[in-house]
């Protein structure tokens, strides 16, 4: 596969470690991998995990293309759960595909 072909088959990473993002609220129907408890939450990009075919397409026999960058996103537990009982520094990390993420609007 040439580099050009590769670029047509996957979306380029839009975010870098440290970027603040918001997870979109959506219900595309069928199979998706973004847990609802994290939708609408804002977090910080921890790292790019790789670029993977989109499972929402793969699940129904599709090609999964364009492949999506997958990020590990960090959220403070006390932000996600209003009644979280542990220390404020506790965190939760969720792997989220790029098409679910938007830059945090300030």
């Amino acid at each position: 596969m040439t580099l050009q072909e590769k670029n047509n088959e996957e979306d380029s990473p839009r975010f870098r470690p440290g970027d603040l993002v918001t997870v979109r609220v959506d219900n595309p129907g069928g199979h998706f991998r973004t847990p609802t408890y994290i939708q609408g939450q804002s977090g910080r990009i921890e790292k790019l995990c790789g670029i993977f075919p989109n499972p929402e397409s793969l699940a129904y026999g599709g090609t999964g293309l364009p492949a999506q960058p997958l990020y590990r996103v960090e959220f403070p537990q006390s932000q996600v759960w209003s009644d979280y009982g542990g220390p404020a520094k506790d965190k939760i990390y969720v792997d989220v595909y790029q098409h679910w993420l938007e830059p945090l609007s300030t």
């Binding site: 542990g86 990390y93 792997d95 989220v96």
Partner: peptide, 28 residues
């Protein structure tokens, strides 16, 4: 409630330790 779950496994995590839950929902 990760700390509560770990207590039920007999493991008390001190408050000085940061607990990080990894939700492996995707390709890792």
């Amino acid at each position: 409630d990760p700390r509560g779950v770990m207590r039920e496994f007999g493991f008390q995590v001190p408050d000085s330790t940061e607990v990080r839950v990894l939700d492996s929902t995707a390709d890792l």
